[in-house]
Nucleic acid binder design. Sequence first.
DNA 1: TTGAAAGCGCTAACAC
DNA 2: GTGTTAGCGCTTTCAA
Lengths: 370, 370
Amino acid sequence: MKAATVYDVAAHAGVSIATVSRVLRRPDDVRASTRQRVLASVLALGYVPSASARGLAARRTGVLGLYFSSVDDEDEQSEAIFVQDTSVEIVVDVPDSREVRPPNLYFDEVLRGSEREAWRHGFALMVGVGRDANPADMVNDIAGRVDGMAVLAGSVPDDILDHVSRRIPVVLIAGPRRGDHHDHVSVSNLEGMRALTTHLLSRHGLTDLVYVGGPADSPDDAERYQGFVEAVEAAGLDPAALPVLRGEFSRVRARGVAETMLATGRVPRALVCGNDQMALGMLDVLIPAGVRVPEDVIVTGFDGIEAGRLSRPRLTTVHQPMVELGRAAMRAMLSRIEHPDQPPITARLPVKVLLRESSEGPAHPSPARP
Amino acid sequence: MKAATVYDVAAHAGVSIATVSRVLRRPDDVRASTRQRVLASVLALGYVPSASARGLAARRTGVLGLYFSSVDDEDEQSEAIFVQDTSVEIVVDVPDSREVRPPNLYFDEVLRGSEREAWRHGFALMVGVGRDANPADMVNDIAGRVDGMAVLAGSVPDDILDHVSRRIPVVLIAGPRRGDHHDHVSVSNLEGMRALTTHLLSRHGLTDLVYVGGPADSPDDAERYQGFVEAVEAAGLDPAALPVLRGEFSRVRARGVAETMLATGRVPRALVCGNDQMALGMLDVLIPAGVRVPEDVIVTGFDGIEAGRLSRPRLTTVHQPMVELGRAAMRAMLSRIEHPDQPPITARLPVKVLLRESSEGPAHPSPARP
DNA sequence: TTGAAAGCGCTAACAC
DNA sequence: GTGTTAGCGCTTTCAA
């Protein structure tokens, strides 16, 4: 099964390879009758142009890259290919406190936006998710295949970033702006958390807040905490006096934190969490323990994931536009590709505070049965 | 900013381009001292090999493709790149019956598995999601860039599939097996639904079932319905006597169906839904209306999505291994690339019936407050 | 409107 | 162990 080439098509249609190329790239430059003939040959031979050859000749691949890192080391699955297992296991699936999988929602959403935007501009999208400590090879590999790549902030060491950006434009996604080397798209983490905290402070008159933070090296969490701090200071309180708990952005870890909190009896009036996962983890423990949310404790999150809309009570949160973040990253790259010398791009997307029952209490007389 | 090439590196290191290539591809064939020198030059020049050139010369791209189609036409977003919007909107977000977005969960999961498996075997992954009626261009484009591609069954017309498979191996994902042209990976839809239905029939002694189906052209739904039919027949009942409702795999559409059902007063003892989304849509309407699930009506789904584990009551369903489906697709492709002449691959992955409260009632005395 | 020909940057014999 | 060289399949001037 030897794949057909321009030469095959040209011979079959009785034209030169240049004409075949023209028919595919700039059809209007070719006489209609010739075009028909060539197209017919394309179909007859099952010709699909080689992107490698085209990329080499045109000096552009027509592909954009997206690189993320992830910590979800799923258990290795079977290696079998010829599975023919139509067996059906029936299990009584009782409620379980285990985290089934840390849904890599953030990635899914950013990817969705990236994919959409890339193809909309005539580019394909290549994705890579690094899971081990050494992203160098993967990032390099992608860099050689694309006309530009977007990278989750903090997922790639600076020296590697510098290396690949000598070949292609690199756009950083999320995190704080670092240096002036790359274009950068992010969301208003600080402002969002500040607005939410201010709301809790002023509307609810709280003073007894606890911040539940993510990983110490998370730039996003650092920004959110800073927003928390600014709001607290603006209210005339001392942020240093307010405890910070670490939930590592994990629902499971947050449950542990909540349990410890209950055990020690030191339960604050509000738990301001750095992401939704941790806030949900708090609810997982508090609600069954008989703690009333929000009457006894207010719980808030950050991100605006779907699960927070489905929880009981529904989760007050700060929604960040993840899909739009992916789109903005692709647009920034395309803009950079088109205008290599323009000044660095810094996009900052707006967020939205969503007040729901976990802070405000019942919105309406619920139509649900007790 | 002209990107460095092998020639630049070779000159800088004082070796031939062949040696540069060797250092990168088969380092052991080069003397250690030479290797060091070349590597140093690579770093110094910021050299990243061009995948286009390599792909051309080596006659393989090292990329695998994944193509899906989707109906989620999200509203077009802004075109702005230089967004600097740190404003924060604060909204009271009341419970809403609108479907925020049809979570394209299935795609996310299959993609996750595909991505993981491709890179694990040293291949990059290219993704494309077709949204309009004409997948030909996108599929062709991808096909020219990869060494093999996986395609969601039913998302690409046969003639296009045949066309591209003259160039590269194509693996079909999901759906029923059609012809012997391509390799195929899928899950035990029929067997899963048959097992679940049999459970409802025999353990719960039901006879009054209604099947809530997906789109008429969904091969997955067809298989599930067939499983339903076989179980019903095995129980000595006439499947033709049992109504079928159409929810189009949509949560919103299912709500409409449920409302109509309530309005007409024709409520069956069990609603067997073709996917989880529709089952959740049923719950959305039934629970607030005071219908007891499962005491009055049993509701079941199919897929095993996260939301079904978070609903009240939790949803009985048939879990299909979506991540593993993606992995299996990639493995099948790699196997085909390595052994072009082996017989067609047909993988059938097992499913698991998860019995939860929407059919079985409370599992344990719930520790939750009333 | 079409054809001829010169690369694009790399790999893989094959020679040394 | 290293260098030479012939393509890989396409795009793109430049002529005709």
